[in-house]
Design a protein around this nucleic acid. Structure first.
Lengths: 249, 249
DNA sequence: TGTCTAAAGTGGTCAGACCACGGACTGACC
DNA sequence: GGTCAGTCCGTGGTCTGACCACTTTAGACA
């Protein structure tokens, strides 16, 4: 369970695996930095003592992991770490599980509650201003479900960013693709009525105020309350839909 | 930000990318299940209209992502979703960041605090018994730092498992490699003195009791207290070490 | 001086061959 | 008849060398 790479545990790693771990280690150690350009495939193959197809298998794998950016006619460049691959991996990992869309919300709550606690301790004035800005956007986009949804996401993302924890941030980014799917699915159930949206804005404002007052316990409490309201709302709408009173077209 | 795979957004996906997304989609849709055996490389290449090297690049990439298990002389088999790749991806993603080892603890706290809340609501009797069992192991291995550390990890893992949330579980498994590194690093600083270890056991017991009583707020409170004590302890030991009073050899 | 074209360098693809490993079949031996 | 060993076949692993497609660039031409 502890070994990072399965191939390392084998006694006889094949060529492509060797090349893969070769680059991975240079990437981990910082010997290769984002933006660096790799040698040509022919030269690299020669230098590493493998054939070009084998080298390409390794390079392609690294590219699929988002570590390399290979461009036709240009060359291969080291790519800055990107959470999108994490998201992809998580999606694939969770694919066979049932009710992932609901379950990923738990991960979201986990990350955000800890993030807002940290944010209470660490957030700079600029961080707070950034969050306040998303709050304004949220208010301005009350009537548009599309931009409203984006503003909602931006608010929560800004909180996680304000935590100053890159680990929380990366994980949050990783779950955000699934979060989006969950959000879209939910929008099928709940409808943005004025009463609901205004309550939503108020909840966000309450969260922000507690954060601005640097009160971790209160901030988390309000954040949890906000999530629970959303959950209740969704449940009620689901029930009413099944009762045939849904307003869906 | 929403697109799962970068290649999909390009207008002209190259062969290996096409094959890669082909299999990825079948994996996501469940058309390919864990344990399924793929056709031979030669047949697959023919069927998909690409050459064998190109097909191999895609297959190798899938294998690197942990989705395929390719064995020499046997064939390629669909692999059950595994969090180890997630851990690898996360490690690579966080590699350039400073102080990851400390930062990943924040993610750990985030996951566990939410997990224990869920566990209070959802944990079955078997889950509780499993946690209790790890607690016993913890007590039995007080004198051995090695097995003691493992028992410690097992206890926390059991709580996350008891949450019944596969998303939390996967993320927890994903950070566990980094958590281990952090743990090892910490063990250089803190020493397992009887007073400390007994306090540790007591803290774990308190957490478990609150969980068994199905009290989410209290369980989370005690869990946070447990983490903070560990944090304080580590800080103090670090200070004493720098003061030249460290007992390290 | 500006633009266009051709060449060089790079990744992308292909075909065919051979090697290495694993399992299954078959034969001999007990 | 059962068991074991050797062989054969299917599989992935690797290599070679060639050609295509894209990008950049430098030289030629207007």
């Amino acid at each position: 369970m502890l070994d990072i790479v399965r191939q390392d545990t084998e006694e006889n790693p094949s060529g492509a695996d060797r090349v893969f771990t070769f680059f991975r280690d240079r990437l981990l150690s910082g010997e290769l930095k984002a933006g660096d350009r790799l040698l040509g495939e022919r030269e690299l193959a020669l230098a590493l003592g493998v054939s070009r197809p084998v080298l390409r298998e390794a390079l392609r794998s690294l590219a699929m992991l988002g570590l390399l950016d290979i461009r036709h006619g240009r060359g291969a460049y080291v790519r800055s770490a990107d959470a999108s691959v994490l998201g992809q991996a998580l999606t694939l990992c969770l694919a066979p599980e049932p009710n992932i869309l609901d379950d990923v919300l738990q991960a979201r709550i986990a990350i955000e509650c800890q993030a807002i606690r940290l944010a209470c301790l660490r957030a700079s004035e600029r961080d707070l201003q950034a969050i306040a800005a998303t709050l304004d956007t949220l208010v301005d986009s009350l009537d548009d479900p599309e931009t409203g949804g984006e503003a909602d996401y931006a608010f929560h993302l800004a909180i996680v960013r304000a935590s100053g924890s890159s680990a929380l941030m990366k994980i949050y980014e990783a779950i955000s693709p699934l979060l989006m799917r969950s959000h879209v699915e939910r929008r099928r159930d709940t409808f943005r009525e004025p009463a609901i949206t205004s309550g939503l804005v108020e909840a966000h404002r309450q969260v922000f105020l507690a954060l601005a007052q640097r009160d971790p316990d209160e901030a988390e409490r309000r954040l949890r309350a906000h999530f629970e309201i959303g959950d209740d709302l969704r449940r009620k709408n689901l029930i009413s839909t099944y009762q045939g009173q849904g307003k869906a077209s």
